[in-house]
Design a protein around this nucleic acid. Structure first.
Ligand SMILES: [Mn+2]
Ligand SMILES: [Mn+2]
Ligand SMILES: [Zn+2]
Ligand SMILES: [Zn+2]
Lengths: 152, 152
DNA sequence: CCCGCAACTGCAAACCATTTGCAGCTCGGC
DNA sequence: GCCGAGCTGCAAATGGTTTGCAGTTGCGGG
C-alpha cells in the first residue's frame, strides 16, 4: 500500500471509535487529520497537517478546531519547541504523553529523549512551594551533527 | 525615595555603561526600560515594560527593539512560560542566566527554582546523539496555594 | 431510506504578539 | 556647535491562532 504508519500507531478505527464514544462526529476532515497524524514519527504543526490533507478536504480553521478537540480529549499532545509554532503528536489510549526532546536549533530536527529526571524532585518542589498538580516541561536545544560547522 | 530595586540589582550606571562600552547609545527609552527592569523581581513582558514607561517616553516598537538589543548583548534573559508571551529579566554582568521556574497555571505567579537537575543528563544526551552546544529549558507548572480549589 | 437537528465545516474577518519600513530626531565623537 | 550613524515614533505588515456566521452533514430515530 502506501505511507506506512509506525508500528505502534493506533489503527484509524480505534481513533474514530474514541471520538464516537464521546459523541463526537467522525467527519472527513477529522479522519484525514487522524490518518495523517498516525503516520508521523515526529510532532507536526497544524499548517503541516493542513497541507497534508487530501485536496478539498478540510480548512486550516477546521484543522485548528479539530486539533483542539483532540487535545481536549487527550488524543494528541502539544509541544512547544520555542519557534512560535505549536506541534502535535498522536497519543496512544491511556498514554499520558510525557516526553522530552532534543531539538536542533538550526534545522529543527527532533530527537526524542527517553529519560525523565526524577519525579521525586518535582514532588519536592511542589511541596516546598505549596503548589499542587505540578508538571514540567523539559526540552534540550543544540546543533545536530549535520548542522555543525556552518551556522548562518 | 521610591520603588526600591532588589538588593542585587545592578545600578543604572553600570547598565548604561555596558551599552556605551559596545557603542550603543544611552537614550531615554533605554534608560527607562533598564530602570524598570532593575526594579522587577520576576520576568516582565514587553507590554508590561511599555506600560510602565513614563508618559511620552518610548513606544511599544521601541521596547521590542530595545529588549532585542539587550538580549543580543546578554543583558536580559528571555523566558517562555507557555502562554504565548515572552518575558524578560535583567542579567547581572557575567551571569549566564540559567534558571528554572515554577509557574501557576492560573494566575501566572512565578517562583524561581534554584536547582538545575538536568546538567548531567544534558551532557549525556548531547554525546549520545552527536549534538553540540546543547542547552535546555525546564519549567514547572502547577496551581499555586491561592489558586487551589477554584479553577475556572 | 428519509427526517431533523445539533454538531461541524468553510470562508472571511478579527485578534494578538511581534516585526518592519521610513522619515525625522538625537546621541556623542569631533 | 556640526554631522552621521544610530534611534525613535508611528503606521502598516506579518504570522500564528481564534471567532462569527451561514450553509452542510453525521447519525439517531422514525
Ligand atoms: Mn520529564
Ligand atoms: Mn537547568
Ligand atoms: Zn540540524
Ligand atoms: Zn495562582
Amino acid at each position: 500500500m502506501s505511507m506506512s504508519a509506525p508500528a505502534h500507531a493506533p489503527p484509524l478505527e480505534e481513533l474514530t471509535h474514541r471520538l464516537r464514544r464521546r459523541e463526537r462526529r467522525v467527519t472527513a476532515p477529522r479522519q484525514a487529520i487522524l490518518e495523517f497524524l498516525r503516520r508521523q514519527t515526529h510532532p507536526a504543526s497544524r499548517k503541516e497537517i493542513f497541507s497534508a490533507l487530501p485536496r478539498g478536504v478540510g480548512d486550516l480553521a477546521t484543522v485548528y478546531r479539530s486539533v483542539q478537540l483532540l487535545e481536549s480529549m487527550g488524543m494528541v499532545q502539544r509541544f512547544d519547541f520555542g519557534d512560535g509554532v505549536a506541534r502535535y503528536r498522536l497519543l496512544a489510549e491511556g498514554e499520558d504523553g510525557h516526553r522530552h526532546h532534543l531539538i536542533c536549533r538550526q534545522c529543527r530536527t527532533v530527537v526524542e529523549v527517553r529519560e525523565c529526571f526524577a519525579a521525586d524532585l518535582e514532588r519536592q518542589i511542589a511541596r516546598r512551594n505549596g503548589y499542587r498538580a505540578v508538571s514540567h516541561r523539559l526540552e534540550f536545544f543544540g546543533l545536530c551533527p549535520q548542522c555543525q560547522g556552518a551556522e548562518p
